[in-house]
Nucleic acid binder design. Structure first.
Lengths: 258, 258
DNA sequence: CGTGAAGTTGAGTATGCTCAACGGTGGTGG
DNA sequence: CCACCACCGTTGAGCATACTCAACTTCACG
């Protein structure tokens, strides 16, 4: 549906930076944090910064898995398709999330930008060489992957066993949780994805998502002016509805939204 | 629902073996394969073999994640529960599968034996020390985890977007695929889990699973005498129904059933 | 100011769920 | 040895949740 993407090249954006990785604001959050200030240059040598515009595709499910990415800003969705076009979004990814992990030779899913997104691109082969050299990075990656796995299991519980209302409540709480982790002001959350995307993420139709939003609103749990901004008025009621499975208490490095 | 399990101790079962890991038949398939015959003794020093009987629980979702397990024989199910008892089985695990990967301090799911199951138990702390010492093991684990992740995404597609018939067809094909990988005679597959387990795995009710079996049978795709043994008469038709998403062509080290 | 995309709402429908009954099988105990 | 019972799986009838189809509003963008 969406075409090829323009790749904006690395340093050229805001002038040449000597060692961008060293200055990276999210470095502690991801694989990069496993390297100290001395070794970080090695990573720096293989990264390129890329940009995908709203609605553009970073890679398709069938593409050779040539790169691993870390999001520095924006929002991506990853999804799988059935032959007749039915779509399941398996995750929304934000700043500091990684994507493209595939130790098969092809990606297991397609990746498309929900909003303009900037990513660090690591060539798979070169990164694997670095992983072999710096086991601390590999360990970090394993932990991240294991968090992803836990999040995937939460999502299976949601898809297989929750009602429409419970699904939407869980989704909003996860968004709230993630926003909180990143230090955003509480009550209002940004919902950058369309109702269609939410539907394909929750295993529902657009209409059911819309109706569920309305129901939550009429129950006084949330308020909506702009569909892309939702105010969480009653997080406790929402948690009750969601089934309280959202690990809403502890401050894990949740790989939540996938 | 199920109580505590009896742990049958290691070598005592068939006499003392000097170095069981070295002689292990599935060693190549799992993390253990990353160590050569010299280093395998290190693993051997921390393993214990445990056994869980049919219907017994190995660990619960809330337990501290003290161990990682590899199945040497049998079948386990792992599941998550909602407060009101609704259950989602997130995977069935067989010989050579691992479970208990959780780099949080608690398991993300409960694990119960579908049939009598024997496992190798690795204490998490000791294993992590070994992982640090032998990066090849960590690499192996990362690849396995990344395969799990791909399988989890397949399952999300199934749960969110497939119909009852498609779900069951996909499930049977995955069982067939796994049996084929382990060199079992083709047409008839073993289905050790109950209809209730299948329902909780596919996000359906028992009745719908049963009706879907009947429909597949009446369509001539499968034959059933014993509910625990299913003959796949028309794998192609089944694949067509399933959506042909099952990576049924290539011989990946599929971490399929979860 | 026209057009199209996105979201909401309504009416009717269908897929899968609930409730219920029944048959087969395996384990237990009289 | 066989009667009994519990469990599992199957089938039927009715129902509800979420889907389909459709109309309408709003808003962004020419």
């Amino acid at each position: 549906m969406t075409g090829v993407k323009p790749l904006i090249e690395p340093q050229e954006r805001d002038g040449v930076i000597a060692n961008p990785c060293a200055a990276c604001g999210i470095r502690d959050l991801v694989v990069c944090g496993a390297l100290d200030s001395h070794d970080i240059g090695r990573l720096n040598a293989i990264v390129r910064q890329v940009h995908v515009g709203h609605g553009e595709t970073l890679f398709f499910e069938t593409d050779p898995a040539a790169n691993l990415y870390v999001i520095t800003d924006g929002c991506m969705k990853v999804y799988k398709l059935l032959a007749d076009g039915r779509r399941q979004i398996t995750g929304f990814l934000f700043r500091s999330d990684f994507l493209g992990l595939a130790f098969q030779d092809r990606y297991a899913y397609s990746a498309e930008a929900v909003a303009g997104t900037t990513l660090c691109r690591f060539p798979k082969q070169k990164l694997e060489a670095l992983l072999a050299e710096f086991p601390a990075m590999e360990e970090r990656l394993l932990k991240l992957a294991s968090n992803e796995l836990a999040a995937a299991q939460d999502q299976m519980l949601l898809l297989g066993r929750k009602t429409a209302g419970e699904k939407l409540a869980s989704f909003l709480l996860t968004l709230l949780h993630r926003a909180a982790l990143k230090g955003q002001p509480h009550p209002e959350i940004s919902v950058p994805m369309s109702r269609a995307d939410i539907a394909d993420y929750l295993g529902l139709t657009i209409e059911t998502v819309s109706r569920s939003f309305t129901k939550l609103r009429k129950s006084g749990f949330i308020s909506i002016d702009d569909p892309k901004r939702v105010v969480i008025d009653d997080p406790d009621a929402l948690a009750e509805l969601a089934g309280i499975d959202e690990d809403f208490s502890d401050d894990l490095p949740t790989a939540s939204l996938r």
